[in-house]
Simulated scan of single mutants.
Amino acid sequence: MRKIDLTVLEEDALCRLDKYVSDKEKDLSRSRVQSLLQDGVLLVNDKVSKANYKVKTGDHIYACFDDEVELEAKPEKMDLDIRYEDSDVIVINKPRNMVVHPAAGNQTGTLVNGLLYHCKDLSGINGVLRPGIVHRIDKDTTGLLIVAKNDKAHVSLSEQLQSKTVNRLYYALVHGVIEHEFGTIDAPIGRDVKDRQKMAVTEVNSKDARTHFKVIERFKNYTLVECRLETGRTHQIRVHMQYIGHPVVGDEKYSYRKTMDCGGQLLHAHQLTFVHPSTNEKITVEAPLPKQFEDILEELRKEQK
């Protein structure tokens, strides 16, 4: 576990926050510092701040996080479920238990390793550990992930995500029967003050988060919902569904103790719509539910009869 604990001196006042921290913590690049700020891990006077914040004398800067190993991701041959590809972007249907990019404890076997072998060239905006990665999905979440092959595409896709014009739809099987047909969860998400490895709905050092959902199918003790992300906070769907009392089935971090043998959380990114960076054409890509997810739904349907 790595800690940053700094107090700004007068001679450092008015320096950009990301530059100040990277200058003081020599082994952390500015991009790494920016990532910590975006994730709400690096705090200024116990508040979330931006990379371009000008530090002031006496500011207290603190972070506690798992250190990221600085290494270069190496190409690895692997079978990738490619759902769309051209010279600018590639959309992958990620399987369960695959980490998106290398980090401490996961230096090989990640999606990035496989992409480097397949694509040869990827956007370099996010550095050597996250080439082409515009957004992420959790290790145990299955489904669609869009990757940029060049910097122009990366900038375009990032801007679309920030302006909330990328449409991301997920299927989730959740505990309990949701009575209403649809709803919106508008609740800010930040680090859990009691457990820094978890996120939570909180007013402390949080960011706005909105998830729209509609009921697809009801079962005796479960509900299949489709969720649309308006924002993209860490663990957003998992935290929001727990918040309304309907946690995702199989989620070891936010749900009940094991109630079903499902091999992991039943959350799948099934549809992704974006504007192509070069042609301006609207592209929609879909990925069917994994077989194990479908099998569980079939068993629940049989129990209904």
Rank of each mutant, 00 (worst) to 15 (best):
residue 128 V to A: 05
residue 168 R to N: 02
residue 193 V to T: 10
residue 153 A to M: 06
residue 210 R to D: 02
residue 176 G to I: 02
residue 196 R to M: 15
residue 143 G to H: 04
residue 160 Q to K: 09
residue 169 L to I: 14
residue 176 G to Q: 10
residue 179 E to M: 05
residue 127 G to D: 05
residue 184 T to H: 12
residue 143 G to F: 01
residue 135 H to Y: 14
residue 149 K to T: 01
residue 174 V to F: 02
residue 135 H to I: 06
residue 148 A to L: 05
residue 210 R to G: 03
residue 164 K to P: 10
residue 172 A to Y: 04
residue 195 D to P: 05
residue 174 V to A: 12
residue 198 K to C: 09
residue 143 G to C: 06
residue 165 T to N: 05
residue 131 P to H: 03
residue 153 A to N: 07
residue 146 I to L: 05
residue 183 G to N: 05
residue 144 L to H: 08
residue 200 A to R: 00
residue 184 T to Q: 13
residue 128 V to D: 13
residue 149 K to L: 03
residue 175 H to Y: 07
residue 181 E to S: 15
residue 148 A to E: 11
residue 137 I to L: 11
residue 183 G to I: 01
residue 210 R to H: 05
residue 165 T to V: 07
residue 182 F to Y: 12
residue 192 D to K: 08
residue 125 I to Q: 14
residue 152 K to F: 14
residue 149 K to V: 00
residue 174 V to G: 04
residue 152 K to Y: 07
residue 193 V to D: 06
residue 136 R to N: 00
residue 210 R to L: 10
residue 138 D to Y: 04
residue 182 F to N: 15
residue 144 L to N: 07
residue 174 V to D: 03
residue 126 N to S: 10
residue 145 L to P: 00
residue 211 T to Q: 05
residue 194 K to E: 14
residue 152 K to M: 11
residue 159 E to M: 08
residue 204 V to Q: 11
residue 186 D to K: 15
residue 192 D to M: 12
residue 208 D to G: 11
residue 151 D to W: 07
residue 129 L to A: 00
residue 204 V to S: 05
residue 207 K to G: 04
residue 124 G to P: 02
residue 150 N to I: 01
residue 194 K to C: 15
residue 175 H to K: 10
residue 203 E to S: 07
residue 138 D to P: 04
residue 186 D to I: 08
residue 145 L to E: 00
residue 148 A to I: 02
residue 167 N to H: 12
residue 151 D to G: 09
residue 168 R to G: 00
residue 210 R to M: 09
residue 198 K to A: 15
residue 182 F to L: 09
residue 163 S to D: 13
residue 170 Y to V: 01
residue 170 Y to T: 02
residue 206 S to Y: 14
residue 201 V to M: 09
residue 132 G to E: 04
residue 159 E to N: 12
residue 142 T to F: 01
residue 128 V to H: 09
residue 185 I to M: 12
residue 192 D to N: 07
residue 130 R to C: 04
residue 131 P to W: 01
residue 208 D to C: 13
residue 136 R to F: 02
residue 206 S to E: 14
residue 178 I to A: 03
residue 135 H to G: 03
residue 192 D to L: 13
residue 161 L to W: 05
residue 176 G to H: 07
residue 183 G to L: 06
residue 186 D to Y: 08
residue 173 L to I: 05
residue 182 F to V: 03
residue 193 V to H: 07
residue 188 P to G: 06
residue 197 Q to D: 11
residue 199 M to L: 07
residue 201 V to Y: 06
residue 164 K to R: 10
residue 179 E to N: 12
residue 143 G to L: 00
residue 181 E to C: 14
residue 171 Y to L: 13
residue 145 L to C: 05
residue 136 R to W: 02
residue 152 K to E: 15
residue 150 N to Y: 07
residue 146 I to W: 04
residue 193 V to E: 10
residue 200 A to K: 01
residue 171 Y to Q: 07
residue 191 R to I: 10
residue 174 V to M: 03
residue 136 R to K: 05
residue 180 H to D: 11
residue 162 Q to G: 11
residue 137 I to F: 08
residue 206 S to K: 15
residue 157 L to F: 12
residue 131 P to D: 10
residue 211 T to I: 00
residue 182 F to P: 02
residue 151 D to T: 08
residue 196 R to Q: 13
residue 150 N to L: 11
residue 142 T to R: 01
residue 196 R to Y: 09
residue 131 P to G: 03
residue 158 S to F: 13
residue 147 V to G: 03
residue 172 A to F: 07
residue 193 V to I: 15
residue 126 N to E: 08
